[in-house]
């Protein structure tokens, strides 16, 4: 088994674990942070797939802008006393 394949398998496992935790995390705050980590791991996956264009876009839009939007929505949810914080 080559090192590159091992890295790909590890990265794929990290992607799956991160997305699972983002969906199952007890608090929304943690879920959003895990989702941002998921976006950054996706950037790595695009780099491995020899797609630097997508990696750039994913880092800026997928992880950066989506993360900012989600955190802003989370803040708004809290301020209105929604159930943003569970457990």
């Amino acid at each position: 088994m080559s090192v590159a394949l091992l890295f790909d398998l590890l990265l794929a496992a990290a992607l799956l674990w991160c997305s699972w935790r983002a969906l199952a995390a007890p608090t929304l705050q943690r879920a959003v942070v895990l989702f941002i980590v998921f976006g950054l791991l996706m950037t790595l996956a695009w780099a491995r797939l020899a797609a630097p264009d997508i990696a750039l876009a994913e880092a800026g839009i997928g992880a950066g802008l989506t993360g900012a939007l989600l955190l802003d929505a989370l803040g708004a949810l809290r301020r209105r006393g929604g159930t943003g914080e569970k457990a």
Binding site: S19, L28, V32, F35, M42, L70, G84
Partner: peptide, 13 residues
């Protein structure tokens, strides 16, 4: 709802 948006994004990825 927020969690569903996350799930939707994961689906897209």
């Amino acid at each position: 709802l927020m969690r569903r948006v996350l799930a939707f994004n994961i689906m897209g990825s």
